[in-house]
Computed example of a mutant assay.
Amino acid sequence: MSSRRSASARLAATGALTLAFGLALSGCSGGLAGNGDDGGSEDGPIKIGMLAPFSGQEAAFGDYMKFGAQLAIDEVNGDGGIDGRDLELVTEDDGCDPTAAVAAANKLVTAGVKGSVGGYCSGATLPTIPVFTDAQVPMVIPAANSNQLVGQGAFMINGTGAQQAEAAVEYIQSVGAARVAVIDDNTDYSVDLADSVEEQAEGFEIAKRESVNPDEKDFSANVNSVLGADPDFIVWSGYYQAGGLLVNQLRGAGYDGPILVGDGSVDAQLAAIAGDESIKNVVGTFTKTPDMLEGGDAWIADYEEVSGGAAPGPYSIQTYEAVKTMAEAFTEAGGTEFEAVTTALDELEGFPLLTGDLTFADDGSREGGGFVIVEPTGDGGAFVLKDDLQG
């Protein structure tokens, strides 16, 4: 087994974040000094916290993640729990907003959670790391994947922005593109991914880098700027709401070449917003979804039983895997003590998950990343596997 950093080293890595966000934390009601149920009795359930967007533009992902987490918890509890203790899911809405996320994280700490398995928007997830670490709550992040999260003391189920960019660059090279325009939406996640694509570009030219305001509806100025650079390939690194409008407007302005979107736009809503004609020749980078996996149909059926019939969406399976990973760490640690659980997460090697065996690198990122190329050709514009990038 390869050597791993100690849990104390991971604590040290969060020092700068803790200092940077200290004032924000002290100003939140119901904070670390609050008198809530600590969930720490030896015979009660072990509470697992999950921050996700249940309101705002990304609200659909909250339920995708919640039901994925609940399915994993039901399975763990059905197998006897953690040394006879059930897991219990506690959710809070972060709205993909950094300030709301810090307040919500403090609520989970006050509620006595012993692990965090949430995090969708990177910009909202980053400031919660010192909240959880200061309270000695280990974090396994299922979705958020900005490079800024790497090495901060949390563990990431999703591949990093750099790993996603590597997959994007490999695909761009495979189709022989020469002039690539890269467009971001000014959010932390989107800028990080766009920067990574630029940094890794090889064999093609970055003809244009453009940023849009995701709250706008009319991107005509951005579209004209991008198309003025005469690209033969466009990368969109933002979320699907603005992405759908942008794709539609690029097509309306006469661009019919390939468009690659990042994982924040890999959702059937992209097609719904862009329209059936505009979505043609669009692909995305994403980690594997249930329909791409052996045994995926059975997992989908189990998920739909928990969700009341709703189909899984992006990050349902990653949140499921975050819970399974945390449960394994509790089991290996023999309890929920922070240093022991963090050490157990550090030392996981080849832990079998549906999306592939899991080993964490020393910085908490997932070794390998696991990104593939998907396209919105499934039912209702759902993204399905196009290229597994295995040659």
Rank of each mutant, 00 (worst) to 15 (best):
R4G: 04
R4W: 08
A7P: 02
S8Q: 13
L11F: 03
G15V: 01
A20V: 01
S26A: 14
L32V: 03
G36L: 12
E42H: 04
G44I: 03
F54W: 07
E58H: 02
G62Y: 05
M65V: 10
Q70A: 01
L71K: 07
G84N: 09
T91A: 12
E92D: 12
P98V: 08
A100M: 11
A100S: 13
V109I: 14
T110W: 00
A111L: 12
Y120L: 15
Y120G: 03
S122N: 03
G123Y: 08
T128F: 09
V131H: 08
V137M: 09
I141A: 04
N145V: 01
S146F: 10
G153E: 09
G159Y: 09
Q163A: 12
A168P: 00
V169A: 11
I172V: 15
Q173G: 15
S174Q: 15
A181R: 07
D185F: 11
N186M: 14
D188K: 11
A194P: 01
D195N: 15
D195H: 09
D195G: 05
V197I: 15
Q200P: 02
R209N: 12
E210Y: 03
S220E: 13
N224R: 12
S225C: 00
S237F: 05
S237M: 02
S237V: 04
Y239Q: 14
Y240G: 10
Q241F: 07
G252R: 01
A253E: 12
Y255V: 03
P258H: 05
G264C: 10
Q269Y: 04
A271P: 00
A274Q: 11
D276G: 03
D276T: 13
E277T: 14
V283W: 03
T287E: 10
P290M: 06
E294S: 14
A298Q: 13
A298V: 08
W299S: 02
A301L: 01
V306Y: 04
G308E: 06
G313C: 03
I317N: 12
A322I: 04
K324V: 00
A329L: 05
A329S: 11
T331H: 04
A333E: 01
A333S: 05
A333N: 04
A340H: 02
A340N: 13
E347W: 06
P352E: 13
L358D: 08
L358E: 08
F360N: 03
R366E: 07
G368H: 12
G368P: 11
I373D: 04
P376N: 09
G378P: 10
G380T: 06
G381C: 10
A382I: 00
K386H: 13
D388A: 14
G391W: 01
G391N: 12
